[in-house]
Amino acid sequence: MNGCIVAFCCEHSAYPAADLAGRLRLHYPESLRVIRVPCAGRVDVIHILKAFENGASAVLVLGCEDGACHHITGNTRAKERVKYCNMLLKEVEVDGRPVAMFNLSPNTPHKFVRAVNEITKIIKESGR
């Protein structure tokens, strides 16, 4: 998993968007590892930390747009967890391991690629 970007993708939005991006042959970094989850709210703090322990260079949590979560508050809770996770990482001074949350719809493959590119940029800027 060394150096890869782990993207936890909600099966109602980000996962179909990723799928569509592939079918449209949109370009995104090959180090991306997509993990399908039933909801962004399923992603726990420990999943993110374990991804880093296993060598990930960044973690993306991708969920539905605000107000469109199939589990009502899964995406908002995911956002809180991402924030908390950043605090935990800062606490142990493990810098340059970005965790970010993005919201998107299933029919927005370009937005999916943009999210991946954005986190890639952050990794590059942090020099890892």
Binding site: V45, I46, E53, L88, L89, E91, V92, V94
Partner: peptide
Amino acid sequence: EKEVEILASQLRLARSA
């Protein structure tokens, strides 16, 4: 249990860094 796994993970990350 949850705080245990998080703290342990934080420690491992810190030490591995």
